[in-house]
Amino acid sequence: MTKLIQTLIIGLEYGCVYSLIAMGMVLVYRTTGVLNIAHGGIGVLAGFVAWDLDTLRGWPYYPAIAVGILVAITAGLLFERFVVRRLASPALATVATLALFLLLQGLVFVVPWWGNTWGQVFNTPFADKKVSIPGANYAVSWDQLILFGSVLLFFGGLYFVLRRTRVGLAMRAVSDDPTAARLMGIRQKLVAPVVWGLAFGISGVTTMLLAPILLLDNTSLTAFTLKALTVTFVGGLVSLPLTVAGAMALSMLEVSTQLYLPNTRGLSDAWPFIILVVVLVARFARGTKALEDTAVAPA
């Protein structure tokens, strides 16, 4: 019983990690048709800025992470204005995000006082605060609880914005049919910056939430992004509920494999690929609506 509760708690924790990253990517794809490969890289940049201000320069925690998130939002606005807007199709913009990702990876290492570090301890005001879980022989830190709450908040917030607000409707309209959206008076040049600024800002916030738990590490956070990208395919790159469900399923499978089948080394690492293959086969076998129709229209 103890092991079962541990499995659920740890699975939930890492499911939240995958979900949080994946939701930011779904937001961009759902509203622009661009697969934002730079999602993790932007977050790492924001994280290093915040870490620099807080740890190296002694800024208070909250202003430091606020500046980090602002840097991410600004990067999103600049990227939309000078790159995405000039490209003819979402596919090209996707390639551009790959280039941005590589650029950011290099940038983090170019700064000399960041470059020789690789797994920085990211401060948190909730250090050493934890809650014991009765019956599980387990404790959960406040940072992990905040992560869980944030996932709920992001999920509800994004769902609400995309479904219930004029901005959200405009975002979806522009992505579904730009021409019709223009005829309806929706100005794409105003909507696109909101999407990219929001998406990059979410990436920054994500890093601020994950780094106290996982350390601020350029490459491991990016690797989590790649895993998260796998689960976005569960939701056809557009469905938030299915994406979160996929993230939770992946995490539970990994954790239960490690705890219940410790001798099947390698199976835990294989789950993302197994899921990816199953999802792709299933979707292509039935001509998925999500990937073909409800995603985005061509630019």
């Binding site: 020789n116 490459t219 690797a223 790649l226 895993k227 990816l276």
Partner: peptide, 26 residues
């Protein structure tokens, strides 16, 4: 692409990412 990247995600991915510029601090 993602599968390939994630498959090599442990060592190879990191290897691809942490670049020469790390020496800048030295």
């Amino acid at each position: 692409l993602l599968t390939a990247a994630a498959c090599g995600g442990s060592a190879a991915q990191r290897a691809a990412l942490k670049v020469q510029s790390q020496n800048a601090g030295q």
